[in-house]
Design a protein around this nucleic acid. Structure first.
Lengths: 265, 265
DNA sequence: CGGCAGGTTGACGACCCTCAAATTTTGTGG
DNA sequence: CCACAAAATTTGAGGGTCGTCAACCTGCCG
């Protein structure tokens, strides 16, 4: 029933092994895009480049003291919180150019676990040196704030997803989101391979592993996607988009009360 | 069936109407706690104090350009995102001493609506002036970063709640969370009044209004709380705590794969 | 070849959503 | 202050979605 699909390789390393920031191909996505030319050297010196990490390896653990933030140079990661009773909630998936560890700034202690989903490479940014550097470089400062804010906005999206969407909508949203992120990194938007297992997807989306599997099967039957283990091909992107928000929840209307358009001066 | 309860008033204004930062009773919670004495004047000058806002009034709307962050001096607010199809997801409730608007930094545009749940008072912090000020004051800078990070951590908590908890656990968690926040502000931890409607609670927790109502009723029957419209009294806090995590989800174990303890240097 | 982890599929049932109606509370104008 | 309308909340009955439990399949590796 499943049609065979071909996939691009998306595991190529973005730049050669010893390269510094100045030649890293990720610099559009990275913090560094806002470092001024004459300061680049200082920034570059701050970073511990090219820290390799194996699949399944921890970048940091919940409870560990915050020392550094980690920029992903290649590969992908998940972060998760562990509830007392052993429940795990995956809080995010991260890929090249993104920053992990921001949660730890709040109390100088990491609150999530960060684990590599495949063999990957990190740039380590010692946090307190970064904070110092940021003070001298307004555009870097602003960019850093943007990155933290983006994390907040992303989390709000997940909350919408978890709080108000059906299983099918969650999966569709998840796939479209991944597609967008691969596209932004120069990979195919329609063919990619999932770096995480069904269980991890389920945890992230608030579904069981069985439900994730069933929805994948159904989406395939209905021609939206081709799924072959972890290889995904989006066959009908507009259809997937329409899948989201088809459920009529218009009765569930908690719209704000009528009131002043703005604070009264 | 419901036992009558008495409640403390928690609507008193924390400081007199024209007061500046230097005498505001919130300064332990506020950004300002990390402003150095000799710089306080500059900080104080930046802020537009005492902006009153009526219940139902918007602080800002999703889509509006980011100009300021807003510190809550008194009262309470909700933030929410609106999905295309009219669905709303409440993303947070905010009370005195907390900061709203951080989501807007990411793209210079607010992504949520912020609405007053009661008549309230704000301090307006023009964002770009704040950013400049922050550069000159390391401890303020760090505190600001902490505040953004705290928002991220809080969102992770909500994700855990939405992704892995039953209706009863969500409500219990929600109530305990509120209790803690009131306590931190010097109010009773066991008796307080909800500033939001059942529908808003439901949206925040990913439940329908009916389910929220039913769970409140059940918790009351079982002696955990007293509920009288929006007035809540926690009767059995340890019991509420135990309610969370009673469901055995130990089979739902997505624990990280065995692997290196840390990145290989 | 056998064990194992990851994934799929099916049957069944619980939890929570939907729909509906009653009831209380709030807001407004007389 | 009361009457009325509108909104919020509660409660009940019924059904659907998704979780639970279980069996089976596949690919991988020793």
């Amino acid at each position: 029933m499943a049609t065979p699909i071909t996939l691009h390789s998306v595991t190529s390393v973005p730049c050669d092994a010893q390269a510094g920031c100045d030649v890293c191909s990720l610099n559009d996505l990275c913090l560094l895009s806002h470092v001024e030319e004459n300061e680049l050297e200082r920034f570059d010196g701050l970073i511990q480049h090219m820290r390799p990490i194996k699949r399944g390896g921890y970048v940091f653990r919940a409870g560990a003291p915050l020392r550094s933030l980690f920029a992903i140079r290649a590969g992908s990661f998940k972060t998760s919180v562990l509830h007392d009773d052993g429940r795990e909630q995956v809080t995010g998936f991260y890929m090249a150019g993104e920053i992990m560890g921001l949660d730890g700034i709040s109390s100088d202690i990491h609150t999530v676990n960060a684990v590599a989903l495949e063999d990957s490479e990190l740039c380590e940014l010692p946090y307190y040196e970064l904070e110092r550097l940021v003070r001298d470089m307004p555009s870097l400062q602003h960019h850093f704030h943007r990155i933290m804010s983006r994390e907040i906005v992303r989390d709000h999206g997940v909350m919408l997803l978890l709080g108000a969407m059906s299983a099918e909508e969650r999966i569709a949203t998840f796939l479209l989101q991944l597609s967008k992120r691969y596209l932004a990194r120069g990979y195919s938007a329609s063919s990619f391979s999932l770096r995480m297992g069904r269980g991890e997807i389920g945890s992230y989306l608030g579904l069981t592993i069985e439900t994730v599997s069933r929805v994948f099967s159904r989406l395939q039957e209905e021609g939206y996607v081709s799924v072959q283990k972890r290889d995904i091909c989006l066959k009908n992107v507009p259809g997937l988009r329409k899948l989201i928000g088809k459920n009529d929840v218009s009765t569930r209307d908690f719209a704000a009360r009528p009131g002043a358009l703005h604070a009264v001066a």
